[in-house]
Design a binder for these strands. Sequence first.
RNA 1: GGGUGGUUCGCAUAGUGGCAAUUGCUCGACGCUGUAAACGUCGCGUCCUCUGGACUUCGGGGGUUCGAGUCCCUCACCACCCA
Length: 381
Amino acid sequence: MFEFKILKKSKKSGARLGIMKTSSGLVETPSLAPVATQAVIKTLDSQEVKETGTQILIANTFHLHLKPGENFIKEAGGLHNFMNWRGPLMTDSGGFQVFSLGFGRDLGIGKISKSRDEEKIGLGSQPRFVKITANGVYFHSPLDGAKLFLGPRESIKIQEKIGADIIFAFDECPPPLSSFEYVQEAVKRTHHWAKICLEVKKSKQAIFGIVQGSKFKALRQESARFINSLPFDGFGIGGDFGPAETTTKILKLTLPCLEEARPRHLLGIGHLNDIEKVIKCGVDLFDCTVPTHYGRHGVAFVSAGKLWKKLNLRHQFFLKDKKPLDSQCRCFVCQNYKRNYLSHLIRAKEITGLKLLTFHNLFFFNGFVAKIREKIKNGRI
RNA sequence: GGGUGGUUCGCAUAGUGGCAAUUGCUCGACGCUGUAAACGUCGCGUCCUCUGGACUUCGGGGGUUCGAGUCCCUCACCACCCA
């Protein structure tokens, strides 16, 4: 069962307020999907994740295939039972690992352009440790080096066994330093794979097709039109969008090529700076590791008047700071603990420190998005 | 009193005669956007005109040597063993 209902469309921007119905419950959109790569939000249990206001999680096909393996999850009663998360779940297809374990690893870069880097990836380039072919991708397991192959058929089979409510088509996430020609080929592969994913899927899970095209407007639009022509339940928009300032430009050109009635999930974008901007472009869902990842690295996102700021609790300075992490925040961390203690825990590498910051950051991000939903409702954006 | 081993960057360590000198931790700075991520990169004697240069270092003092953290003598301290 899968439905998406748009409750309100903004008159001031492309923002939409909606409800996504899945077999496991509702998701108010726009929403953040925190990243539970290994069927867990690192440091938190499912009950705690719920208490952060999280409505939907995204787990990872590639990593769960390696460990514990989809068959174990299936035998455990599917991902929901396995991890005791009763709400909506998605699985990413493994397409991001084509990048992160491939060119991302080779070049030591993330998927977002940092500057106007020169294009280093030309047509026909291959990463060192990953081989990309027309039918799929050969990987080496980051756990033990074992060879493995993942293509559209494999990814879908695995995702069916894992059993999330929403699954993603297998795609290739091209690196930000790609040339036009390289991305063009990657988009072709992704489109070819998208069709296969739809053909082989037998389950009743919802499936989202992924739009690629990097920073190239023509490719983005072509990809959006193509993916839109296929009977996907929703859309993922992946890859990079060039330097920060071009992200919204590209989204504004891409999203109108997608049927309005189907939800759009922006893959892997969700710094606080980006969230409102992308929602105004018409994004309904997005996932991002920033709140959890930064939390474990000692950084808390907190209110600063109407805005926000980052606090790096690793700094000794905070050992003298007796204020709550965020005096405007109603989460249990901010109700019960002070910055001096949190800083101590982080500096002492205590696991509870990582947990408390993870909890707060997720609570903060979810609250941040909830406020944006309010703004759409009230016609303020 | 005798013997043996030790004394190197905040701590712990590596150092064969050519070293401002290893590694780990601590400390500091920075970075993390579909998680190879409780992680990574860099710095950590002093100073400077800082992709390089100058100066001062390896418990103290003396010696051998072109050159000593490394060899010799001596003193101090620490550890263990024997009285």
